[in-house]
């Protein structure tokens, strides 16, 4: 290491003597003796530290029983959504330097709690996909993959990808007013999927088909337009316009039935 490095190191150290307190909601539903409680952990802040690094440090040095989920730790996979000071967000890309000295971490509401900060988003998302048949319904005849692919307008492909970027993290559902009241609500993630397949010319379904899936209060007419879903979406998906658009289409379809 060069002399310059050392100097930076020393100045770096002096910048870092801030201590952070994390109040973590602890609860293990599979343990009858466990009661929900807030547990405080203290940690020295460090340059470019994220909640991924902070929580792993706590687990490795202070409390090996702490449960949480990370996979990609790069903001791509959607595993680590949690409530950070009351707001659902991806923990892995939350830099501690943007947090106050005291931070409360809680699991996402709505989803089944596995333990501490770990929730079963996967199980709910699979159920949602099955319920909404959230896969491309192609032509009856299978495409011959030896042949040149069907053409698609380049702008349309980009628009579909825009909606396809959803990572199923669950933030939108955790922030949703309707979902707080009804467990069977489809949620913005579900509407995003319907909007995505509806936009895709390869999908043969029509609005009548989509009406069957989301044309009621568990679907698009249950949305109260509070729009927290769009505010918290880590991929900045245009959920607000998509839900409004779907509601209009479904209202027209419903009226025409």
């Amino acid at each position: 290491m060069s002399a310059d490095d050392n100097k930076e190191d020393i100045s770096g150290q002096s910048r870092q003597n801030r201590w952070l307190t994390f109040n973590v909601l602890r609860y293990n539903p599979s343990d009858p003796a466990s009661k929900p409680r807030l547990q405080a952990y203290k940690l020295e802040d460090a340059d470019s530290m994220t909640l991924f690094i902070a929580l792993n440090e706590i687990r490795e040095h202070q409390d090996p029983t702490l449960q949480f989920d990370f996979v990609c730790r790069a903001g791509i996979c959607g595993s680590c959504a949690m409530m950070v000071n009351g707001r659902p967000q991806l923990a892995c890309r939350t830099l501690t330097r943007n947090l106050p000295a005291e931070t409360t971490l809680a699991p996402l509401p709505f989803f089944e709690l596995i333990g501490d900060l770990s929730v079963n988003t996967g199980k709910w998302m699979r159920g949602m996909s099955e319920r909404l048949q959230a896969w491309l319904h192609g032509q009856e005849v299978e495409v011959d993959p030896r042949r040149i692919e069907e053409r698609m307008n380049p702008e349309l492909a980009e628009q579909i990808y825009e909606l396809d970027r959803c990572v199923e993290c669950g933030c939108c559902v955790a922030a949703c007013g309707t979902a707080q009241m009804r467990q069977d609500f489809v949620g913005a993630v579900g509407f995003g999927k319907i909007a995505r397949f509806r936009l895709d010319p390869r999908d043969v379904r029509q609005d009548d088909d989509y009406y069957e899936l989301i044309g009621d209060d568990t679907g698009v007419f249950g949305c109260m337009s509070l729009l927290a879903c769009q505010d918290v979406c880590p991929k900045s998906l245009p959920l607000q316009t998509q839900i409004a658009f779907l509601r209009r289409k479904m209202a027209v379809t419903g009226a025409g039935l």
Partner: peptide, 19 residues
């Protein structure tokens, strides 16, 4: 490999397209 890309295209992958 070309068959795999084209199968995915038929299954819905929004491959970026050429202008």
């Amino acid at each position: 490999a070309p068959k795999a890309v084209r199968e995915l295209a038929a299954w819905g992958t929004p491959w970026s397209r050429l202008r």
